[in-house]
Amino acid sequence: MTLGAPLFWLVVFFFAPLAIVWAYSFGENDGLVRISLTGTFQNYVRALEPLYLEIFAKSALIAGLTTLLCLVLGFPFAVAVTFAPRRLKVWLLLLVMLPFWTNLLIRTYALIAVLREEGVVNGGLEFLWSAGSALSQSLGFGPLDEFKPLSLLYNNTAVVIGLVYIHLPFMVLPLYAALDRLDRSLLEASLDLGAGHARTWLFIIVPLAAPGILSGSLLTFIPALGSYLTPDLLGGPDSQMIANIIERQFKRANNWPFGAALSFILMYATFIAIALQALASGRRSKETP
């Protein structure tokens, strides 16, 4: 009985719509608005053409890079939060959480305002540049060349910056959850027994945080892999990720069956990643009962 409501929710709002899209992926367009479910595998065959595989690979690369950068940036921060005094800890975690309370679209537009050619970063650089130019002039070296704004927006770098910014909390929170349970006496023992700080980090902290690293990476990688808005708004001419292709198949190309097949390939990839993670954490819990 207690299971009834969530089960109903899951079936009506998750399984049923997904089943429809899944069925579409075996269909064909019949005229402009009808889809006939012919059981064809043609959509999947087409989705596995090199063109789309390359886009999948590129999406995975961008998502992987995002995950790596989030880990590199998030790990020291999570450690700092763990060892911070109680009061400060709450504030630091609040800092991570705060962006979540703003709509993704607004955050992305804010990032555009920061990165664009007449944006905050280039404005700051231009100010420094003109100050430097005035200085060199007063020293008798003549003015510097005209300031050329950096192209920070509409390229793949902008997409990665945007994705890291959006997904950092997904990495920091699980890392913090793992690190907070860490037995401090192990670190003291390691330092007492002659290991340096680097060794203690590498051989004590990182392995103990491994479950956090794994779940944080997964929580970052999966949404980053399917990200749509960020490459659409921050990306350049070649920054299309798989979700952008799916959107275009559903809208511009009006080919729902093919869009559905692409969506499900993305979904299968996600399921495989989750299954691998479950497998890995299952093995670990067996090793350390």
Binding site: F100, W101, L104, P169, F170, P223, Y228
Partner: peptide
Amino acid sequence: AAVGLTFSGSLAGC
């Protein structure tokens, strides 16, 4: 809650 929020965010994005 954060995960939920981002989900709704990406939906709004669509």
